[in-house]
Design a protein around this nucleic acid. Structure first.
Lengths: 192, 192
DNA sequence: ATAGGCATGTAAGCAGTTACATGATTTA
DNA sequence: TAAATCATGTAACTGCTTACATGCCTAT
């Protein structure tokens, strides 16, 4: 019945980890949900409204003191069914789009300095994310070692997806650094 | 002046490597242009038309024997300027969206078998891409060793972006395999 | 013959981005 | 008192996807 609705399933999956408001989800999705999805806040509010209308999530008002009230959401039975159906559906190829690599691809024929600066910046961001993800891993597995946790832990889904995020960020960090160095050396050699 | 126009720059960058037709570009972009961008064929034809109208690429009819004629495109001076301006513009964060990781994130709460199958499949695809990319690297650097090529080679942009593709595919392959194994062992332990 | 690769598009629809809009509370 | 964080949306636009459409040539 439901065809693409790309975001839905990502939101449902994120809500498996706990009750979140649109605002909280926005922060999670801005970091990249352990790097498998990105979404702007506006889209999340919209999607949550739709998901609630379809009965896949249930909203609950939380009154806070000192802060505006918020609505937090939980996955319903129907939502779980939707996720199960989605998981059984053939996966489409991962979507990756990166400005920065396009720039590097053209790096020979344009001024390299700004590209190098962007590579450095991206490397720092990746390093920061990696740290964050590694802390998340520690938090998730508690006292257990990784192997043991993966064998015996109760909920390992988030751990596994976070592992993917770690791998990705580590590679981005290293590639950016290596590439920046390479371009810098060539620029230095030519300029002087 | 030109704001996002996401695809444009990716197409321009790809055309730096040589003259290509829409059809040829479609194949390149289906693999992922060394994995930094993906685009459907239809979009490419559209984008090429626009790029030509804007004078950023120049089309040339190529009559072939035994095959339909095709139009191949080259980046113009104006196109290079556009790319240069683009490279100097701050990069937006990379966009990554993957169904499969979403499914893994929810893997505890749904039937794991189809997810495991998809992981295996994806691992094979990644392994195939990795091979392809490694061959591309060899082709690009010719007789030279990597380090020497990166220091002295004439055009290293495509090499650097291909390195990014290699890193990515290698990690995807390994993560998929590891994750499939983990889920399988748990499923096996429970089922029997 | 027919399946598959080469070759190029149009049209409809939806997903996602950008810009606009509001308002309370805490911290600097 | 200004900036940052919390909190939630609407509206317009456009980029991208999906489906539809056509036709030639080669290899099996």
């Amino acid at each position: 019945m439901t065809k693409a609705m790309a975001l839905r399933h990502a939101v449902l999956a994120a809500l498996l980890d706990g009750e979140y408001s649109g605002y909280q989800l926005a922060k999670i999705f801005n970091v990249g949900v352990a790097n498998f999805w990105y979404a702007a806040p506006q889209q999340l509010y919209l999607e949550l409204t739709k998901l609630e209308a379809d009965g896949l999530v249930a909203g609950r008002e939380v009154v806070q003191r000192g802060r505006p009230s918020k609505r937090v959401f939980t996955v319903t039975e129907a939502g779980l069914d939707e996720l199960a159906a989605f998981a059984a559906t053939p996966a489409k190829p991962l979507l990756l789009r990166d400005d920065l690599v396009v720039k590097v691809h053209a790096a020979d024929l344009v001024e390299p300095a700004p590209v190098i600066a962007q590579l450095r910046e991206r490397a720092e961001e990746a390093a920061a994310k990696l740290l964050l993800f590694e802390q998340t891993l520690l938090r998730l597995r508690g006292d257990l070692g990784e192997e043991e946790f993966l064998r015996t832990g109760e909920r390992i889904g988030p751990y596994l997806s976070c592992l993917a995020g770690c791998r990705l960020e580590r590679e981005i960090r290293d590639w950016c650094r290596q590439t920046a160095r390479t371009l810098e050396e060539r620029a230095g050699g030519k300029a002087r």
